[in-house]
Amino acid sequence: MINIGVLALQGAVREHVRGLEAPDVEITVVKKVEQLEQLDGLVFPGGESTTMRRLINRYGFYEPLQAFAAAGKPIFGTCAGAILMAQEIAGQAEPHLSVMDMTVERNAFGRQRESFEALLSMKHVAEDVEAVFIRAPIIRSVGPDVDVLAEYDGDIVAAQQGSFLACSFHPELTDDARMHQYFVQMVRESLAEPAV
């Protein structure tokens, strides 16, 4: 069995658990730092990034999460989760966990009334991924090692850098689990390869 965790400090946790389900996957709802040790991969759910960051600091998750990333273990962040992963956040002095070479802009599509859904073509996944954008960020730029997986109207909304996967929308709010299963496959492959 492979073990994938969903960071459960705040946000849409249950929906991610559903998307990750597979016969060889055990899913852990992560509330305590000790639980990270047993994991092969981790999901940062959608929610409020400022709230999650405060809770990450307060419960001593900050360094263990960075160590988790440094060990090359796969991480998948959606919306607020992608913001946590970015190396730079537009208009903000400090990033959060800074694990992925990209710059994100928060609430880049506008406020809630501008939130929307659309179909996206996503590299490696499908031509017709249902994407729900809620006060979503945009990935404004990416480094040379980052693969852009999807764009909406010319803006980057999904990207991958090695074992790190980030998107600005919420695949967890749809019944379409293909993006989650793509991540599950990334975790499987990370275990098949010798650790770097």
Partner: peptide, 22 residues
Amino acid sequence: MEKRTGTDRVKRGMAEMQKGGV
């Protein structure tokens, strides 16, 4: 690509993101 605002998924989804919060 058709862009749809104000759908149930978009409106309910916003509240889903608030879960576990104050």
